[in-house]
Amino acid sequence: MIKIYGSARSSAGRCYWMLEELQLPYEVMPLNMKEREHKSEDYLKINPNGKIPAIVDGDVTVWESMAITSYLAKKYQSPLAPRTPVEDAHMMQWSFWALVDLQKPAVDWLIQEMFVPEDKRNHQVIEDAKKIIPNYLKTLERGLEGKTYLVDERFTVADLNVASVVHLVNSLGMDLAPHKNIDRWMKACKDRPAFQKLAKMREA
């Protein structure tokens, strides 16, 4: 059985989403972050970076959330996996873009809003994120023009990875309504039963 380390409320959430999409059995391995168990000697053998998420699938260990989602889709021959090298490249393209470009300012904003006391909060970081994120959303809006999903006409690992970041952006208060393609696409992604299961996990 696959073992997963990391809370569904963290970046591990997209890994839970993939596991639910594939209907794979898995075991949640609790880590007490306040007690810094993610920096323990035992966990560092799993992820030498001392971060979450990570999975152990038999004798295979994978860390970094988007590497995990890609691995799971491909290993278990899911319809979410690429079928050609071109599809693979385009799925990686959108996934890397979401991680490197869109997620960075969103996480900076999240840290200031959720983890920094108000009297020490850097409001400039938040304002900068609010300015730059709409520019990135324009890229995604264009990428979805005339399309149901990002790659081919089916839901794939690219949609899962990118939607997980867009959901974070939306939860921070960024209105998606002006972006008609993104708004339509996100509703389709969030209507999926696997995402609904993830949403319930995050509420627990």
Rank of each mutant, 00 (worst) to 15 (best):
K39M: 12
A81Q: 12
K147W: 06
R36Y: 08
Y149L: 04
M18V: 03
Y76H: 05
Q124F: 08
P105T: 03
R83E: 15
M1E: 15
G6T: 01
Q196P: 01
L176P: 13
P30C: 07
Q124N: 12
A188G: 05
P193E: 07
E127Y: 06
Q103I: 01
P25T: 02
N49Y: 00
I132D: 02
N47E: 15
L168F: 08
V165P: 04
D108S: 05
D183L: 01
M201A: 12
Q112A: 01
D183T: 07
D119W: 02
L24R: 04
S70A: 15
S11N: 11
L144V: 11
G50N: 07
I4A: 05
T84S: 13
S171G: 07
R154M: 10
V28A: 10
K187H: 15
V86L: 15
S70V: 06
I126F: 04
G13K: 10
A54C: 11
K130M: 06
K104Y: 10
P79A: 04
L160A: 11
V125F: 02
E203P: 06
T148N: 15
E145Y: 08
S7C: 08
S78Y: 01
I52L: 07
P30T: 10
W17S: 08
V162L: 09
K120M: 12
Q124W: 07
K180C: 06
E87S: 10
Y5N: 05
F115Y: 14
R83H: 11
S95D: 00
P105C: 08
Q124P: 00
G13W: 13
Y16P: 11
A8C: 10
L150S: 10
Y149I: 00
P85E: 13
Y5V: 01
E37D: 03
A199D: 15
I132Q: 00
D119Q: 09
P25H: 03
I52C: 01
L176A: 09
Y5W: 14
P178Q: 08
T156W: 03
H167S: 15
E127S: 14
V165F: 07
F155D: 09
W94N: 00
P48F: 11
L137C: 05
R184W: 04
W109R: 01
I133V: 07
R142L: 15
V107H: 07
L144S: 10
I111M: 08
A73V: 04
R202Y: 14
L44N: 05
V162M: 12
K45A: 15
Y5R: 00
G58H: 06
P53T: 02
